[in-house]
């Protein structure tokens, strides 16, 4: 009797529990997938197309949405909660859906030349205090910047050094020196950026120097001369001016003792060419020749007057592609020689 009543009570309790849960439970064939970090749920059950077409569309979509949302809410309510400022918040897990980044992953900044040097030498940064004692004003002032201590730009009197020219403006000298330091720093900054991005620094060979040496002056002149549209081809020379040395390609030689097999191969190739009866084909030369011939042909077709044809021949003397040709006047000889020297 007693046991029967206990069973009854249990059954009733179970029933009540089921009824309570009935209002919040939704039946699905396949379980939903949740990504609670993004408050995201995906329902992989195919929606019933027949029902969708029979029923009112909006009603069908709403009931589908209600079920799915209820399941998502059930899942969210299971999360551990916390009370923050009288409000109940649920702690969300990290989002599990992988989404693309907006920008690429940041790379660490490349070290500057100084940083590399400092690392090599083991020089460590020392933190300097921000405030220093100013003896003139008798107070603590900032080390740098506006209203700094011991500000040498605010001095009203500068002693002229014994070795200096008495007529020189010492104030202007200081200002100029400062400007030059700033410019140098800026140049170094740009150089560091160029180094980090592996770009060749433009004009790195001609940096401003206070006292240019003879070699530097020579180089500057050379750069200025070749900085024309025709790369200095038509620049006049000074009398007795020698052509610039150490410009252009350097000859490189094979090591005396090195790869014997490649050396042997080279020699064999050369012998083969020398021995062969076929004339050697210089492709660039051949192509240039072909192009010239085509040009001449098309030109002659266009204007058939023989006088103009003669002029054409003169023009050809200045063209690029006739390196090995017999035609061309005295003008032509000069640049050719130059090329040979280089």
């Amino acid at each position: 009797m007693a046991s029967c009543s206990v069973e009854d009570v249990l059954a009733r309790a179970e029933k009540e529990e089921a009824e309570k849960l009935k209002s919040i439970s939704v039946h699905k064939e396949l379980e939903l997938e949740f990504d609670l970090g993004n408050l995201l749920a995906s329902d992989k059950n195919p929606p019933d197309v027949r029902e969708f077409k029979q029923q009112k569309k909006e009603e069908f979509l709403r009931s589908l949405a209600r079920g799915n949302t209820q399941l998502l809410i059930n899942e969210l309510w299971k999360l551990p909660t916390e009370r923050v400022e009288e409000v109940i918040v649920a702690k969300l897990p990290d989002p599990s859906t992988r989404l693309p980044r907006e920008k690429p992953v940041p790379k660490p900044r490349a070290p500057t030349k100084w940083e590399e040097f400092a690392k090599l030498k083991g020089i460590q940064k020392k933190k300097k205090t921000n405030l220093v004692w100013d003896d003139v004003h008798k107070e603590w002032k900032r080390r740098w910047g506006y209203k700094r201590a011991n500000d040498d730009t605010k001095e009203w009197l500068i002693e002229v050094p014994a070795t200096a020219d008495p007529n020189e403006d010492q104030f202007a000298k200081r200002v100029k020196a400062k400007k030059e330091r700033v410019a140098k720093n800026e140049l170094n900054r740009l150089k560091n950026i160029a180094r980090a991005q592996k770009i060749k620094v433009p004009g790195a060979g001609l940096t401003p120097a206070s006292q240019q040496s003879k070699a530097e002056l020579q180089m500057a002149m050379q750069v200025a001369k070749t900085s024309t549209a025709s790369v200095g081809k038509f620049q006049d020379r000074l009398p007795k001016e020698k052509p610039a040395r150490n410009t252009g390609k350097k000859r490189k030689f094979q090591p005396l003792i090195g790869d014997f097999s490649s050396e042997k191969q080279k020699q064999l190739d050369m012998l083969k060419i020398m021995d062969g009866k076929k004339p050697r084909l210089d492709i660039t030369k051949a192509v240039n020749k072909q192009m010239r011939e085509e040009d001449v042909e098309s030109g002659s077709k266009r204007r058939k007057t023989p006088g103009k044809k003669g002029r054409k021949g003169n023009f050809s003397g200045k063209g690029k592609g006739k390196k090995g040709r017999a035609g061309g006047g005295g003008k032509n000889r000069k640049p050719r020689m130059k090329q040979g020297k280089r």
Partner: peptide, 22 residues
């Protein structure tokens, strides 16, 4: 999806966007 947040106010879950492919 909006901002990524460590926690969310339960009473503030007010808006559902439902996408149905059908």
């Amino acid at each position: 999806r909006g901002p990524t947040v460590p926690c969310v106010r339960l009473a503030g879950l007010e808006h559902v966007l439902h996408f149905t492919a059908l």
